[in-house]
Design a protein around this nucleic acid. Structure first.
Length: 850
RNA sequence: GCCGGCGUGGUGAAAUUGGUAGACACGUCAGACUCAAAAUCUGAUGGAUGAAUAAUCCGUAUCGGUUCGAUUCCGAUCGCCGGUACCA
């Protein structure tokens, strides 16, 4: 049969009744609440484990194959831990506020709650169909009032601590989503969600002071067992840089400009200054004769999107303000320019320009004819190009002859003595724009009172329910749909009782996911967001598995909230997630024409093995790896896989594909291989006689090696190699006449974290009445994992020339003489001088000759 | 540009205090079973030369280094993936 693009489903000739088996055990686990967990105080601290999956956003398209990858990994790990006597907390829930449901509501008028809850039901069904051992009694959904009541409560704690403030500075606005965005939600100048170029817009926003935690968010990364890439991304995002702030007096005015620089040592080369168009001193610094030009420039800049402003990096623009500053180090008058290559949001929004040693300043100076002074000994002519490498200081007065670090320290000391500057630390991280002008989110529980100012809704009045609206359409004016409901907006001030108005903005989707891992600990508590006993019992999360796309957003926000809660004494650890693992993306095959364009999979024929053509044109196509996408028709639907091959095959295949952490392409042919293995295993148990005989010595060795390998690899999340070992064991068993009970039972145990339905069924068929998943994990006998003989390698000059089967632990002398006695070796060393003889016991003998 | 990661058969991949490269699986080929096919079972399968299960050579992106010995350590280069960027 032709496998079209490798994604066609071939119904297997089934002997193995996975449908019945899987339905049977899922029903059993459900009725018996087999995986519900309690805070048993008799279990010692080190045997309590919290294993967490990133909960999904319940989209309308259902689960994709990426979800079960991480979920299967944690499920295997949890089942393994339980069988090893651990008390395991393993919950699941839904991140259920968010824009897609709301956009759907705008199109169809269906309440987002209805869509969301039906999507959740579908997700829950799909997740359950994979047989994961979640404690479903702890399920949470962030859109329910029982849950968001506490999201609102945490917001009030932040507000009371002075960590939430209103701001009117320009923010990123997505015209398509009709809402403001956090900096973290802007990717390359575009809205992360819909790809629309963001524009700057002045909108009243609620902002959280995450910058107050910048240092701790940075430092505490050190101790975390997280992927280096995620830590690096967070470090970059926080963007701490050490330097100096320097004051420049403005000539003829009682004002000064403060700049941040990491290279105070180049101050002698500062030949002009630049302030951002949004800088507060723009107005004051603009002289009358320059006013028209400045106004025109500000207007030009205001009409550029952020994308244009950064994309047009090549061509610098700017205008002279008419004012001059005094370079503090040499008293020179230097012009102050206004240019949009200086960002208001970084540092002080003003810079000292050192064109000789900075690309951007150099370009600007060249364009506007500003002087360029070399202050670092350069290997190029700084009039021709900027020298950005290091060099000894020149033209720099008291710094001449010094290197970078010495000069920098000397300059900062010099400035500090005169009160003109000081050491300073600056962050790229900006405060978190927290309000959204949309409907489907948590209402921000604040009231604006003309007399008392902004006051929080009393905690006893929480939850502040999301009201019903007649239209979900965002106004686009920076007001959320809530603003249109007078009866909801108009309220009384909880402090003075006078008439007041509610805050109408809602929270971003990230709010609910900032603390969901805490709610799982105590999901039905109506008095507290989590009881401190339960929090102390489980926290911190021992293993957190999810996609790398949350490296900065969710993981930074959650760490921030957690630290605030820690400072308030509400949680006992300063970090929420001890260990983080990112599962790799599951990609798919795609077919590429010579011009690199891609052809949808359903337009491709495989004419012979690994030769693909485009049906319409007959053009030969190259098979490449691409992300799954609807347009390429290469999306794999988990429901179909489960129907055709079963959940156990799906689980095991996803783990067998390769290491958890790397991305790998889906191959239905590979899935069939795993299915065959399970079918073979099934037939092994059902078609052979289970005997009470002792297994043969050889089989016993394979068995104990398998216990060891599967145990170690499961504990270290190397599931692919653990599965390979189980395949070796089953292959060996096929060579035996009967199935020794001892081996059969152990095999079922080894299989059980991976293919829990099949394993449970095999266990029952072996005559057991207790649950396999509650049985103790097998132990191995180290002696039985070691072979009696080893293959000793004989090398001449490092090349393998012969080998021999020898007893384990053979002495060096014997090994050497065996090698020398070997016919092939003799041929290679004959007539040559032996220079050196190396013997590695049980490994090799290497004879070096000349 | 900068930061992080990766590069091994026809394919997914194994192998790390430096010691048999390619476990396991897919695919392919051959055999058994079958009227036949599918399914299943057994065996072979990195490349080249070769009748060969003989032998030799080549082979872990490329080039170089350290070493008796390098997929593994070091240096340079190329390519791919992810992140990020007028960040002063």
């Amino acid at each position: 049969m032709t496998l079209i693009g490798d994604t066609a489903i071939i119904a297997p000739m089934s002997k193995y009744p996975f449908r019945e088996i899987e339905q049977k055990w899922q029903a059993y686990w459900e009725t018996h609440q087999s995986f519900a967990v309690t805070e048993d105080e008799n279990i010692p601290q080190e045997k309590r484990v919290y294993v967490l999956d990133m909960f999904p956003y319940p989209s309308g398209s259902g689960l994709h194959v990426g979800h079960p990858e991480g979920y299967t990994a944690t499920d295997i790990y949890c089942r393994y831990l339980r069988m090893n006597g651990y008390n395991v907390l393993h919950p699941m829930g839904f991140d259920s506020f968010g824009l897609p449901a709301e956009n759907y509501a705008i199109q169809t008028g269906t309440h987002p709650k209805i869509t969301t809850e039906s999507n959740i039901a579908n997700f829950r069904r799909q997740i359950k169909s994979l047989g994961f051992s979640y404690d479903w009694s702890r399920e949470v959904s962030t859109h329910t009032s029982d849950y968001y009541r506490w999201t609102q409560w945490i917001f009030i704690q932040l507000f009371n601590k002075g960590l939430a403030y209103e701001s009117n500075t320009p923010i990123n606005w997505c015209d398509h989503c009709k809402t403001g965005l956090a900096n973290e939600e802007v990717k390359e100048g575009r809205c992360e969600r819909c790809g629309t170029a963001v524009v700057r817009r002045n909108i009243r926003q609620w902002v959280l002071k995450i910058t107050e935690y910048a240092d701790r968010l940075l430092e505490d990364l050190e101790a975390l067992d997280w992927p280096e890439s995620v830590k690096a991304m967070q470090r970059n995002w926080i963007g701490r840089s050490e330097g100096a702030s320097v004051l420049f007096h403005i000539d003829g005015m009682d004002e000064s400009l403060e700049v941040f620089t990491t290279r105070a040592d180049t101050l002698f080369g500062a030949t002009y200054m630049v302030i951002s168009p949004e800088h507060p001193l723009v107005e004051a610094l603009t002289t009358d004769e320059n006013r028209d030009a400045v106004v025109a420039y500000l207007d030009e800049v205001a009409h550029k999107s952020d994308l244009e402003r950064t994309d047009l990096a090549k061509e610098k623009t700017g205008v002279f303000s008419g004012s001059w500053a005094i370079n503090p180090v040499n008293g020179e008058r230097i012009p102050i320019w206004i240019a949009d290559y200086v960002l208001i949001s970084y540092g002080t929004g003003a810079i000292m320009a050192v064109p000789a040693h900075d690309e951007r300043d150099w370009e600007f100076a060249k364009k506007f004819g500003l002087p360029i002074i070399e202050v670092l000994k350069s290997e190029v002519d700084v009039q021709e190009e900027a020298w950005t490498e290091d060099g000894v200081h020149v033209n720099s007065g008291f710094l001449d002859g010094l290197g970078k670090d010495d000069a920098n320290n000397a300059m900062i000391a010099w400035l500090e003595e005169r009160g003109l500057g000081k050491k300073a630390i600056n962050y790229k991280l900006r405060d978190w724009i927290f309000s959204r002008q949309r409907y489907w989110g948590e209402p921000i529980p604040l009231v604006h009172c003309p007399t008392c100012g902004t006051v929080p809704v009393p905690e006893s009045d929480l939850p502040l329910l999301l009201p019903e609206v007649t239209s979900y359409e965002p106004s686009g004016t920076g007001e959320s749909p809530l603003a249109k409901i007078d009866s909801w907006v108009n309220t009384v001030c909880p402090v003075c009782g006078g008439s007041a108005k509610r805050e109408t903005n809602t929270m971003p989707q990230w709010a609910g996911s900032c603390w969901y891992y805490l709610r799982y600990l105590d999901p039905h508590n109506s008095e507290e967001f989590v009881s401190s006993e339960k929090e102390r019992y489980w926290m911190p999360v021992d293993l957190y598995v999810g996609g790398a796309e949350h490296a900065v957003l969710h993981l930074l926000y959650a760490r921030f909230w957690h630290k605030v809660l820690f400072d308030l004494g509400k949680v006992s650890t300063s970090e929420p997630f001890t260990r983080l693992v990112n599962q790799g993306m599951i990609t798919s095959y795609a077919f590429q024409r010579k011009d690199k364009s891609l052809v949808p999979t359903d337009m491709v024929d495989e004419i012979e093995s690994d030769r693909f053509i485009e049906r319409e044109t007959g053009e030969t196509l190259e098979r490449v790896i691409a992300k799954m996408s609807k347009s390429l028709k290469n999306v794999i639907n988990p429901d179909e896989i489960i129907t055709e091959y079963g959940a156990d095959s799906m689980r095991m295949y996803e783990m067998f594909m390769g290491p958890l952490q790397v991305s790998k392409p889906w191959s239905t042919a590979g899935l069939v291989g795993v299915y065959r293995f399970l079918d073979r295993t099934w037939r092994l148990f059902t078609e052979r006689t289970v005997s009470d005989q002792e297994p043969s010595a050889a089989l016993l060795k394979t068995l104990h090696k398998s216990i060891k390998k599967v145990s170690e690899d499961t504990a270290s999340l190397n599931f692919n190699t653990a599965i390979a070992q189980m395949m070796i064991l089953v292959n060996d068993l096929y060579k035996e006449e009967t199935l020794p009970r001892q081996v059969a039972e152990t095999l079922a145990k080894l299989l059980s974290p991976y293919v829990p339905h099949l394993a449970e069924e095999l266990w029952q068929q072996l005559g057991h009445t207790t649950l396999l998943s509650a049985t103790a994990w097998p132990e191995w006998d180290e002696h039985l994992t070691v072979d009696d003989t080893v293959t000793l390698i004989f090398q001449v000059n490092g090349k393998v020339r012969s080998k021999a089967e020898v007893p384990m632990g053979l002495g060096k002398e014997e090994a050497l003489s065996l090698a020398k006695a070997d016919e092939k070796i003799q041929k290679w060393i004959e007539g040559k001088d032996t220079v050196k003889e190396i013997v590695v016991p049980d490994k090799l003998v290497n004879i070096v000759v000349k």
